[in-house]
């Protein structure tokens, strides 16, 4: 395939492209899914993170 004789290397070449397509398709299908409400624990976490970063 494409000048690569060894099927295992050709498979790796193909899988690189297929897994990228998988990422793209998954991301596009779920583009608007997964919204989450902001909870008090999220706000607490962000405030603490901000404090740590500012000190640094």
């Amino acid at each position: 395939m494409l000048g690569i004789e060894d099927k295992w290397v050709a498979l790796a070449y193909l899988l690189c492209i297929l897994s990228t397509i998988l990422c793209a398709v998954y991301g596009i299908i779920n583009w608007n899914k997964g919204d989450e409400d902001v909870k008090s624990e999220d706000i607490k976490w962000v405030s603490e993170e901000k404090k740590v970063e500012d000190e640094l």
């Binding site: 990422c23 793209a24 998954y26 991301g27 596009i28 779920n30 583009w31 997964g34 919204d35 989450e36």
Partner: peptide, 10 residues
């Protein structure tokens, strides 16, 4: 949220 992660996969 998880939505950002889903989009970032692309």
């Amino acid at each position: 949220s998880k939505k950002e992660l889903n989009r970032a996969v692309v």
